[in-house]
Design a binder for these strands. Structure first.
Lengths: 225, 225
DNA sequence: CATACAAAAATTGTTCACAATCTATGTACA
DNA sequence: TGTACATAGATTGTGAACAATTTTTGTATG
């Protein structure tokens, strides 16, 4: 069970979802993927089967693989799960944050602050997401880290479907405050700020108007009925 | 991508792990599985690929599929993740627990109390695990429920490897106290009791003597070196 | 007796062709 | 015009044959 090519496929698909290049409802045709990755169909099928576990790809019998379209219910569950998991991660982060870890966080904030109007949306998304993953890495719980990776992926999908403004990207100011709390060793404050930050994210979604399941053509042509 | 047979395979493998019939390190040969489920090898391979996501099966290239042997580090992460996740689940459970839900919990406790010396170990394990899953169902967060399912599975593996006594099975008395707290509407107490309960589980493992990676033959023949 | 090497068996990985199913297009009819 | 049906095309599902790798077994040698 060779891992290299399948892992590569998985990685690329996941990255595309995180960057919102692949949006909800998109079909991932086997033939198409064979062309992109220039490999056999069997390998594509294995990769798709493995992708199931991340909760962002649905396999529908005789139809194919589709990027998941999260429901409102599911979205709320995802955000609640993030609050539960990131709270514990945050406590661990504070506990493990010595000067090298603090330096790493500060370096990341510098990157986030360097974002300009010219920066691609994908890059901004990647930075926002990365902040949370760095906290998880410093927290050192691999299981929670893996779950958070899945949840941030699903968050990208949700914000891609229902996000209202570009504030859906994590506000850098909030990240900064969290780092300060971590640096100050105040675990409770850091956790509270993080919880608040996640609430902001969740409040930015508007389930009344989903642009997720819209056909690519319809949204591109922008035809008013 | 037909789901039925693959799902059946996945379900059976997962159940066997939960019941500790399949223990850590066991190889799941493709041919062997073909014989058991009387299906084609392609379906077995798909099922194994999907099983990867549950964190209890490792796929090693050119070697095959093996039931994971959790490390000490990983085990601690699993228990910490359970505390994080079940705390939130517990709060939701208290919030959603009306009389039908309470009745369901009580009915389960009756089942657990009916356990005798003749009851099979697998059955006892299933009941213990089921209690936590019922809490998750009442809590109604599907994402957390899915994660808890994985984590209880991994817990079975851990206890199978490093568990010291049969107290590794959830003490029924503790389940009972938790239900009482839920019935009383005291979310904080229920969460605290659950956290305590999980600590008991974790304290029952002894990492110095692993019987997990022991060869099947060696443990069966019980040869003293 | 232990080790090293070589052949054989078993297991996993890969590819291909064919079957089954779904989707889309076109045509007939009310 | 619009609906229903039938055909054609495309896509997914399945199985078997073949290649590559690993594991086991057997043998020879120090």
């Amino acid at each position: 069970m060779t891992n290299s090519i399948e892992q590569k496929i998985i990685h690329h698909v996941l990255d595309a979802i995180a960057d919102q290049k692949l949006h909800a409802g998109t079909k991932l045709g086997e033939q198409e993927l064979v062309g992109v990755f220039s490999c056999s169909r069997a390998q594509i099928r294995r990769a798709l089967a493995m992708l199931t576990g991340y909760g962002v790809i649905d396999l529908i019998p005789n139809k194919g693989a589709f990027v998941s379209t999260p429901s409102e219910r599911e979205s709320r569950h995802v955000f609640e799960a993030r609050r539960a998991i990131e709270a514990t991660i945050c406590k661990n982060t504070v506990q493990n944050a010595k000067s090298p870890e603090i330096a790493r966080l500060r370096a990341h904030l510098v990157e986030e602050n360097a974002v300009t109007a010219q920066t691609s949306r994908a890059e901004v998304l990647r930075l926002s997401r990365r902040f949370h993953m760095i906290l998880a890495e410093i927290g050192q719980n691999d299981v929670l880290g893996q779950y958070l990776e899945e949840l941030t992926l699903r968050s990208s999908l949700i914000l891609g479907c229902y996000g209202t403004q570009r504030s859906s990207l994590c506000a850098t100011g909030e990240h900064e405050k969290i780092v300060e709390a971590i640096e100050g060793g105040d675990a409770d404050l850091a956790a509270a700020l993080l919880d608040h930050h996640l609430s902001h994210l969740e409040n930015d979604v508007d389930f009344s108007a989903r642009r997720g399941s819209a056909t690519a053509l319809a949204s591109i042509l922008d035809v008013a009925t």
